[in-house]
Design a protein around this nucleic acid. Structure first.
Lengths: 163, 163
DNA sequence: GCCGCATTGTAGCGCATGCTACAATATGGT
DNA sequence: ACCATATTGTAGCATGCGCTACAATGCGGC
């Protein structure tokens, strides 16, 4: 889990109920959402790079369904967090951390999609649902999904590709 | 040359969710998150009422892992949306819509939990994952889960009470 | 009757995400 | 070289949710 926690932003007020620097274990829903966003962005960037050779803000915006402004802002945050690099009016590149994160996210995503398809869900639905689900499946559940896939893939080869 | 008057976002007007059919797949992530929040809250409220007879803000806060301030604010929003009712310094009650939503959320939650358990995931993990997953499974996927459960449950299961 | 404490509510801050409107820069056609 | 267009960036606004700090209320102990 790549979780970069910025240090406590409050000057001199944090009550040490739990260490802010090592801590993202609690609910911290907002931070978790930010994490998800980061994964989605990084994944989309990786996909664009793989597909078109480069990731430009507008493409990213189109791919993510938001305006380019939102993309730029979020990319700035990701740059702050060391996941991507950008220069003004240039396209977006992944750092090593970003690439790693993207790889993990993509692997997880694929597993979930495959699992859902094996369950009998249509490909498009599987992909859409996986988009939301992938951020919430624990490692244990992911393993269970893999196990299910292994046991259900006896002699059926790969599933019919209904695109 | 440039159009200046824009009536896009007025804080009082109803949300024009019924957009043009061309771009139906808007992300609307923020609204979706708000929806999830609402479901979580309503579910927790229902649980507290079922358990303790009433839902008080502090209990809710404890149950949801946030401070009471966040609870109060969110409850205010839910009240605005007609899901709950509250009076100052009194506990929180569900409206009919709230109860309906809570029921649906709970049913969905249970289905997901049962499914994950049937997959071989430990109960605690199943519950934790379902918490995040339940908001992202489409009806189709949910149906697939039910089908899986039916086919894998040869006389072992307890009946999921469909609300 | 009064006071302390828990609960509830309010005020104000910070951050993340979304948007529109507009400015700055790059790019290509002429 | 120059302008039109597309792309990228900036400014400002709104919403949502989290927090701390403090005020108001309710309730039980004295």
């Amino acid at each position: 889990m790549v979780l970069k926690s910025k240090n406590a932003s409050k000057p001199g007020s944090p009550p040490p109920k739990s260490g802010p620097e090592t801590a993202v274990y609690q609910r911290q829903t907002r931070l978790q959402h930010a994490q998800e966003r980061a994964q989605d962005y990084v994944e989309a960037i990786a996909e664009l790079i793989a597909g078109c050779g480069e990731a430009r803000a507008t493409d990213l915006a189109k791919s993510l369904g938001v305006t380019h402004v939102t993309v730029i802002r979020t990319v700035q945050r990701l740059q702050r967090e060391g996941l991507v690099t950008t220069q003004p009016y240039r396209s977006i590149f992944l750092t090593d951390s970003g690439r790693t994160l993207a790889g993990k996210a993509r692997a997880r995503h694929e597993k979930v999609v495959t699992f859902l398809e094996a369950l009998g869900v249509a490909k498009s639905t599987a992909r859409a649902d996986a988009e939301g689900i992938e951020h919430h499946v624990s490692d244990e559940t992911l393993k269970a999904m893999e196990k299910f896939l292994r046991s259900s893939r006896k002699g059926s080869g790969k599933p019919t590709r209904t695109y």
